[in-house]
C-alpha cells in the first residue's frame, strides 16, 4: 500500500511515522509538505503525525487543519481511503471536521509523558483487526491537550456505532468516557492521542503499536 506522511512546521513524529510504515510495509512513505495541494499519485494511506504544528497557537491543530494540503486529505478520506492521525494529527483531524469532538487542555493542566495502558474497545476496524477485542496494550503518550470532549449526544452516538476504538485504563487527561481513540462513522479515519509509531520496535521498550500498522497495511 502506498503511504504518505504529512509534514507541518512543528511536526516532530513524522520520522517515527515514516519508520513504522517502512518497517511494516518495506516501502518508504512519501513525506508531503503541508503547502502541497496534491497527494502523490497512487497514495492510499495517509498518516497525519504528532508534534506541535504552528506551536499549538490559537488551538492545537487549528492552523494546520486549514493548510493547503487539507482539502486533498478531506477528499481522499471521502473516497473511503484510510487516514490515521496521531496526537497532534488527531487534533488536526477533529479541527478539520473529519472526526467528531475536540481535544482540550488536560484536566490536570500538566503535560503528560508516560506509558499509557489502553484497551482495544473495537477490534473490528481496519486499524485494529490484528488485535483481540478487549486486549490491553501499553502505548506511549506525550501531550498537553489530549482531553477528549464531545457533547453527550455525540458521545452516545459514537459509542453506539462502535467508533470508540481505544480507551485508557487509567485516564491521564480527563478525556470523556476514557476515550483515547475514535474513528469516523465510515470507519476509515481514525484519530488517537497515544503514539503507536513509538511502540513498534523492541528498542522502543514495547511493540504493542505494531499490530495497528499490520492491521492497516496488511502484512505481518
Amino acid at each position: 500500500m502506498k503511504s504518505a506522511v504529512i509534514v507541518f512546521p512543528g511536526s516532530n513524529c513524522d520520522r517515527d511515522a515514516h519508520d513504522a510504515i517502512e518497517k511494516v510495509t518495506g516501502h518508504k512513505p512519501a513525506m508531503v509538505w503541508h503547502q502541497e495541494s496534491d497527494l502523490p499519485e497512487g497514495t492510499e494511506f495517509i498518516m497525519v503525525p504528532g508534534g506541535f504544528s504552528y506551536g499549538d497557537y490559537l488551538r492545537c491543530g487549528a492552523m494546520a487543519s486549514r493548510s493547503a494540503i487539507m482539502p486533498a486529505i478531506v477528499a481522499h478520506a471521502a473516497t473511503g481511503a484510510p487516514v490515521l492521525g496521531v496526537c497532534n494529527g488527531f487534533q488536526i483531524l477533529t479541527e478539520s471536521g473529519l472526526l467528531p469532538g475536540a481535544l482540550m487542555r488536560n484536566a490536570g493542566l500538566k503535560f503528560v509523558c508516560e506509558k499509557a495502558k489502553l484497551k482495544v474497545e473495537n477490534a473490528n476496524t481496519r486499524f485494529t483487526s490484528h488485535y483481540e477485542g478487549g486486549a490491553e496494550l501499553i502505548v506511549p503518550i506525550a501531550h498537553h491537550d489530549g482531553n477528549y470532549f464531545a457533547d453527550a449526544d455525540t458521545l452516545d452516538r459514537i459509542e453506539g456505532e462502535g467508533q470508540v476504538v481505544f480507551r485508557y485504563g487509567n485516564n491521564p487527561n480527563g478525556s470523556a468516557r476514557d476515550i483515547a481513540g475514535i474513528t469516523n462513522e465510515q470507519g476509515n479515519v481514525m484519530g488517537m492521542m497515544p503514539h503507536p509509531e513509538r511502540a513498534v520496535d523492541a528498542n522502543h521498550g514495547g511493540t504493542d503499536g505494531l499490530k495497528l500498522f499490520e492491521s492497516l497495511l496488511g502484512s505481518a
Binding site: 490559537l58 488551538r59 487549528a62 492552523m63 477533529t94 475536540a102 482540550m104 470532549f149
Partner: peptide, 9 residues
C-alpha cells in the same frame, strides 16, 4: 467560524 473559534467547544 472558519478559523478563530471551534464551534464544538
Amino acid at each position: 467560524s472558519k478559523l478563530l473559534s471551534n464551534p464544538v467547544i
